[in-house]
């Protein structure tokens, strides 16, 4: 085991996959000479050269489309969006081109590309730079959506994403790049579509992903002091969702809270709740509650921003409600 930051774990995954497969290349704004806006691609230009670590103009739609086109003819591009906020300009390419190509062509042409970059709320970046879009992409058949919460998962999931023959939306936590964690040495691959129990518990299941995993684990610690034994389930892959893991956990604990950074309306949690009520209705002892970001654009002011974000206290409160502890 080595202790790595989330950022370096991603860097290692990119380096190893580029070493392994000459068809893998990295393209995006500031990935080369600048070494990456968040330094995820540090050192890669030197190692692999400008044909495989490609700096682009600020033209998200354009280079996302270039990535899709290159993938259509067999390369395995990793397209970096400096943040997912900017990827809004490329949504047509992600939705209309990447996601649908295999289906429209009746299986003749696939898009084995990874689109990655930081997402979620940050610190005082205001409305246009602090938002979570995973539910948008998870809505689209043809896309996979992956969101690691730990350095080990970041490395293992990125390697799987690069090897996957489908377009993968890989959303990193903007606030997670500096967190440290143990990462297995050598070949470490985490399969897509498998959730991970980050904490075992028996009283309530807290379902979360990305930055919300840390929030949920903190909440679980507080709850443990109050003799509530919470299970924390990290989805890791939003789509395809590991419904089996979700259902097994809820069937065990009978109570569930879903935590996410995004807005409440039609969020990831809405899909989780739908699955739970449909599949294990008779296991539920309380309605499933959701902890989400506030239903507003992100404000700049620090206090308002705090109020807009999900945090451990909100999770604890929701858990108390589903446990009928008032």
């Amino acid at each position: 085991m080595a202790t790595l930051t989330y950022r370096d774990a991603l860097n290692h995954a990119l380096r190893e996959e580029m070493q392994r497969d000459p068809n893998v290349f990295l393209m995006g704004e500031e990935v080369g000479v600048y070494q990456g806006a968040y330094k995820v691609s540090r050192g890669l230009l030197d190692e692999f050269g400008p044909m495989r670590v490609v700096d682009t103009p600020i033209t998200e739609l354009g280079f996302a489309g270039v990535g899709v086109g290159a993938a259509m003819v067999g390369l395995r591009p990793v397209i970096e969006f400096m943040t997912w906020n900017f990827a809004l300009l490329a949504v047509d390419q992600l939705v209309n081109s990447a996601a649908k190509m295999r289906y429209m062509s009746n299986g003749q042409v696939g898009v084995p590309a990874v689109f990655r970059g930081p997402g979620g709320s940050a610190l005082q970046l205001a409305s246009q730079h602090s938002q979570a879009f995973e539910s948008w992409y998870a809505h689209i058949p043809g896309l996979k959506v992956v969101m690691p919460a730990t350095p080990a998962d970041a490395k293992g999931l990125l390697k799987s994403a690069i090897r996957d023959d489908n377009p993968v939306i890989f959303i990193e936590g903007e606030m997670l790049y500096n967190i440290k964690g143990e990462v297995p040495e050598g070949e470490h691959v985490v399969p897509l579509g498998r959730a991970d129990i980050k904490r075992q518990g028996s009283d309530v299941t807290i379902i979360c992903h990305s930055k919300s995993v840390g929030v949920s684990l903190k909440a679980a610690e507080q709850l443990a002091n109050e003799d509530v034994d919470a299970e924390v389930l990290d989805l890791r892959t939003i789509r395809p969702m590991d419904t089996e893991a979700v259902l097994n956990s809820v069937a065990k604990t009978h109570r569930c809270v879903v935590v996410e950074e995004g807005w409440p309306f039609a969020g990831v949690g809405a899909q989780v709740v739908d699955t739970i009520q449909r599949e294990v209705f008779d296991e539920l002892d309380a309605p499933v509650l959701r902890v989400t970001g506030a239903d507003v654009p992100m404000p700049y002011n620090k206090q308002l921003e705090k109020a807009a974000k999900s945090d451990p206290a909100k999770v604890v409160s929701a858990v108390n409600q589903v446990l009928y502890r008032d």
Binding site: F25, M51, R52, L61, G62, F63, A64, G65, V66, G67, V68, G69, A70, A71, M72, V73, G74, L75, P77, D92, Q93, N96, S97, M101, M104, S105, V109
Partner: peptide
């Protein structure tokens, strides 16, 4: 492919040309 969004396939073609050069 025929592509249904006006202009949407132009970057795809650039990507295919990129792959040829790559």
């Amino acid at each position: 492919g025929g592509h249904g969004i006006v202009g949407g396939h132009i970057p795809l073609t650039t990507g295919m040309a990129f792959a040829a050069k790559y």
